[in-house]
Every structure is written in structure tokens, then in C-alpha cells.
Amino acid sequence: MSYSPALLAEFAPTGVLRASINLGNPILANAGADGQPFGVSIDLARGFAKHLGLPLDLVVFDAAGKSVDAVTNEQADFGFFAVDPVRGAGIHFTAPYVLIEGSYMVPEASAIHSNNQVDNAGVRVVVGKGSAYDLYLTRELKNASIVRAPTSPTVVDTFLAQGCEVAAGVKQQLEADALRVPGMRLLPGRFMVIQQAMGLPKSRSPEAVAVLRAYVEDMKQSGFVADALKRHNIQGASVAPAA
């Protein structure tokens, strides 16, 4: 499919399509031994650039909040985000392409054994600053307090350094940390499901938003997203249903 020069200029005002990539979510993006990013987000970014016929630049960040700010402030042209109403003030979201579980981790000796025991006075929950978990738990927790780590991958290190009661984040990241740090356990189940979507700056036109939304639906329906999850050996995430 070909698009008008005006629409392509809207997608890439600098002439290069800039994709905001968050390395703080290991389900979607990671850095290889050579420092180059890889993962489901990168595959989708390259696919979208090819779809538009534009060159691509990956703008890489270590935290979700920084990635969101880059698109909101138009330092990047699109990105990959957990859907959240706070972020929706500056970003047009597509329907989700992947669903991701959020979990809690506690010390083995903790008296907390279920998710509904977390929201109590005296419980400190560590989250990555600006992450979807931060935004969600800021709204939902009424009695527990929130401690914000600089990034999602540093949640468990902050949790240990400050002697907090609960760490919250991507289930797969916490599982990896539990293998790294002895004496930890994940609480059963999940406290939320993240709807991971693509997004454009709020200033972009309805036509541009429609193109990105259609691209995401095509990538789900064609099996591209499922194949990317399999290719990158991602467990615990599933392809979102059709919009």
C-alpha cells in the first residue's frame, strides 16, 4: 500500500521514522551482547517502517517513563506502551497487540501469601518509576505505600537495598530475579494484566492513527506477533484478541 507524501511526512517529520524503544520490559525488548536492541517491539517497528517505506531509527531508553515522554514530546514518532489513561493525555493508542501479567514478589519468610494482602498499612511496594505498574498501583493502592525504583529492571535491587515488603512488575522479570536472588517467592496469580499497544503523539491526525491501528490488527491476524513471541522465546505473554 502506498501513502501520500503528506501522510508520510506526518509520520516522519525528520524524514526518518523514529521508534521509541523501552528496554525496561524484557518481554518486548532487550539489548544483545553487541548492545543492539532486539525483541517483539523491534520486529514490529521494523515491520511498520517497511510498511510505510521509510527508513527507521531506534531511539532506545532504559525505562517506560522516558519512552513515553519521548513520544509525548515528539522526540520520537511512535512507540510501544502499556495502555493507561494518564499516558493517553499525550498519546493516541492502538488496540493492544500483547497481554502481559503483572505479579508481586516477597521474601520467602513474608506473612503475605496472596495479592489481596498487599494493600495494608506498613507494606512498601517497589515499582519502576513511570511504569504501567506504577501508574496502576498509584490509583489502586489505598493503604500500602509505593517506593519507586529508577527503572523496572532495578526494582528488585531497590527492594533489597531498602528492605521493602513487596516488589511489583513484569512476571518474567521477577521470575528471573528470583533465580538470581535466593529466598524470594512470587505470589500466586496476577494483580493486573498489561495491555501493550503501539502509540503516536496526540498531535498526529486521525488518518495517521487509523493507519497504525490497522497495522497492529494486521500483525495480530497474520500471526506476526505470535511468531515474534515464539522466535524470542517469550513465556507468559499472549497475543491480544482482535479489536
Results as ranks from 00 to 15, higher is better:
residue 51 H to E: 15
residue 39 G to P: 08
residue 32 G to M: 10
residue 37 P to E: 01
residue 28 L to V: 12
residue 33 A to N: 10
residue 38 F to L: 10
residue 38 F to A: 03
residue 55 P to Q: 10
residue 42 I to Q: 04
residue 40 V to T: 11
residue 27 I to Y: 14
residue 58 L to K: 10
residue 32 G to L: 07
residue 58 L to I: 14
residue 32 G to N: 06
residue 38 F to R: 08
residue 44 L to N: 05
residue 41 S to Q: 08
residue 52 L to M: 08
residue 49 A to R: 05
residue 57 D to W: 15
residue 39 G to R: 02
residue 36 Q to K: 11
residue 22 N to Q: 09
residue 45 A to D: 01
residue 51 H to P: 00
residue 32 G to R: 00
residue 59 V to Y: 03
residue 49 A to P: 00
residue 33 A to I: 05
residue 57 D to G: 14
residue 56 L to A: 11
residue 57 D to T: 15
residue 27 I to R: 05
residue 54 L to Q: 10
residue 36 Q to S: 13
residue 56 L to C: 12
residue 24 G to E: 06
residue 53 G to S: 11
residue 28 L to Q: 12
residue 52 L to Y: 06
residue 42 I to V: 15
residue 56 L to Y: 12
residue 23 L to K: 02
residue 57 D to Q: 15
residue 31 A to L: 10
residue 38 F to V: 14
residue 27 I to V: 15
residue 48 F to C: 02
residue 26 P to V: 01
residue 38 F to K: 00
residue 34 D to S: 08
residue 39 G to V: 07
residue 52 L to K: 00
residue 26 P to S: 09
residue 46 R to L: 04
residue 30 N to M: 11
residue 33 A to S: 14
residue 54 L to M: 13
residue 39 G to F: 03
residue 39 G to M: 02
residue 51 H to L: 14
residue 22 N to Y: 13
residue 45 A to Q: 01
residue 29 A to K: 03
residue 56 L to T: 05
residue 52 L to Q: 01
residue 25 N to T: 11
residue 21 I to N: 01
residue 24 G to C: 12
residue 23 L to V: 03
residue 36 Q to M: 13
residue 56 L to P: 11
residue 33 A to K: 12
residue 26 P to D: 12
residue 50 K to V: 14
residue 28 L to F: 15
residue 30 N to C: 10
residue 38 F to W: 13
residue 30 N to K: 14
residue 50 K to W: 11
residue 39 G to S: 10
residue 39 G to I: 04
residue 40 V to H: 00
residue 58 L to W: 09
residue 22 N to L: 00
residue 54 L to Y: 01
residue 58 L to M: 11
residue 58 L to N: 04
residue 45 A to K: 04
residue 59 V to K: 03
residue 56 L to E: 09
residue 40 V to N: 02
residue 33 A to V: 10
residue 54 L to E: 06
residue 39 G to C: 09
